[in-house]
């Protein structure tokens, strides 16, 4: 009855900001970033990417509550770059890896297409080919159970 709309967990509302940055008041070169409508899929990937960068002193993320659709990520850098900039760099790198992976996948799939003579191409568009309609073929297929 008063359940929230189901897509609220992954679709931004009108005017809602997806990223919110709070600078740390006590630790130098540190910030906490709240990312809304995202979960471990992005959080963990981003954290791992940040840790692989040499300017990072600390990066960690948490999803404070499984029912609240956001995570927070804490970043501390060595001062040569701000947390915001390094986060942007990390995202750019991830996107680059993603598109690189996509081209690789495309190429691999096209090789497979040639090998299999187009079988997989059909699978991409229409997984069950163009075989004639079975329609209501299953009608009255029941076995000989007799009604009493």
């Amino acid at each position: 009855m008063n359940a929230p709309a189901r897509h609220e967990s992954y679709v931004l509302e009108d005017g809602e900001k997806s990223v919110e940055l709070t600078e740390d008041t006590k630790i130098p070169n540190a910030a906490t970033i709240k990312i809304v409508k995202q979960d471990h899929t992005l959080g963990n990937m981003l954290r791992a990417q940040l840790l692989a960068m040499p300017q990072i002193l600390f990066a960690g993320y948490k999803v404070p509550h499984p029912l609240h659709p956001y995570f927070i990520i804490k970043i501390q850098t060595d001062g040569t770059i701000t947390p915001q900039e390094i986060l942007e760099q990390a995202c750019t790198k991830l996107i680059a890896t993603m598109s690189n992976l996509e081209t690789k996948f495309k190429r691999e799939f096209s090789y497979k297409d040639v090998e299999a003579g187009g079988v997989t191409a059909a699978a991409g568009e229409d997984p069950y080919g163009t075989a004639g309609g079975a329609g209501t073929g299953a009608w009255g297929r029941g076995r000989d159970y007799l009604d009493f």
Partner: peptide
């Protein structure tokens, strides 16, 4: 760069090996 090797594609499944990426990725 990440590497991909597709070992098998069938009508309903694909089997591939992904290399040179992070576990998180």
């Amino acid at each position: 760069e990440p590497t991909v090797r597709i070992r098998e594609v069938k009508k309903d499944r694909v089997n591939f090996v992904l290399g040179n990426v992070d576990l998180a990725f």
